[in-house]
Design a protein around this nucleic acid. Structure first.
Ligand SMILES: [Zn+2]
Ligand SMILES: [Zn+2]
Ligand SMILES: [Zn+2]
Ligand SMILES: [Zn+2]
Lengths: 171, 171
DNA sequence: TAACGCGCGATATGATGTAACAAGCGAATG
DNA sequence: CATTCGCTTGTTACATCATATCGCGCGTTA
């Protein structure tokens, strides 16, 4: 098992800069081009730490000197997904910058907090083994996996508890 | 572990009739109304054995004496999802009749064949335990789970292999 | 009967995603 | 240098998926 939610007080500027640097490197190594446009889309995602809809990205980039049409955002996203620099969160029709970079065929589980909207990417060997076993059990060859769990992160759980309690008192 | 793909030669008329009967019972038991409209939507899903988009359902019902507007199909789907009579396949923005009926909180994994479009609903205790462990490991409280794996079913895998081989011969 | 909840019709609108074709632009080729 | 080629981007239009809102009909309840 591995990874959790981004801590609430981390150095986010640094976090974004690092992610962009890793993306530059990765693209360089693979001989693909992280063009300015693609870079801006990835940066918008990285700055958010929450899944963003394609049109949310459009909105954010609209506030910069150079707006980007929706079509171009989708194309950039296609590229980022293909290169593993971003993930698609199917249950939200939204996209997320990938912070770590995963091994190929590594199985990733997304934990989606409904309250604070943060995301944890969890990788678990045991989970992967069970998945393989469950699929192979019926002779199925897996290609793509969508593993998403929504709920409440630890921090938000505590907050909700506090809110509930104070409501109880005021009643 | 449990369940697989519907066999290619099963008595589908019977399969649909049974599913509808179970749905009638379930609604009756819970005191909710499986109205004619809801029933027709469920039946359209059950007849397909593959996920259908909402507007595909609209199209199929358009061919009957009494077409159903999209809005009503969505409302029926909301009901069917709430009652656990249908599932939403997030990675396809589509819907699927539930054949078995699951225990509450049972964890269901969908295997989606990219070629024949059939779906297997797999439940696995081990998978559930690992999921719980992975989520609890970071203090996360899970509410909804989306577990979807797309790939090739056993039958389609064999077909593809045959196609590949015959291509190899003709070259 | 009157009030109410609920299912449904009807229309409009919003959100998400693609198709198709033209134009820019840099690298390779001659 | 001029040409050609492939990839990226701009532009417009369209397709698909989903929700908002208002009002009517109908059975239940007070
Ligand atoms: Zn950060
Ligand atoms: Zn949270
Ligand atoms: Zn069947
Ligand atoms: Zn198949």
């Amino acid at each position: 098992m591995n990874a959790g939610f981004p801590s609430l007080d981390h150095d986010h500027k640094r976090c974004v800069a690092d992610a962009m640097a890793r993306a530059d490197e990765a693209c360089d190594a693979r001989g693909v081009r992280l063009t300015p446009l693609r870079r801006r889309v990835l940066q918008a995602l990285a700055e958010s730490h929450s899944p963003l809809g394609a049109y949310e990205i459009v909105e954010r980039l609209k506030k910069t000197r150079e707006p980007v049409p929706a079509m171009s955002v989708y194309r950039a996203l296609d590229f980022l997904l293909a290169e593993g620099l971003a993930h698609r969160i199917e249950s939200q029709n939204a996209f997320l910058a990938c912070i770590h970079g995963h091994e190929t065929d590594e199985i990733v589980l997304f934990l989606l907090c409904e309250r604070c909207k943060r995301v944890a990417e969890v990788t678990s060997g045991a989970l992967g083994r069970d998945l393989s076993q469950a699929t192979r059990g019926v002779g199925f060859s897996a290609k793509a996996r969508v593993l998403e769990v929504s709920g409440l992160c630890n921090a938000c759980k505590k907050t909700e508890a506090r809110v509930k309690q104070s409501q109880g008192i005021s009643r």
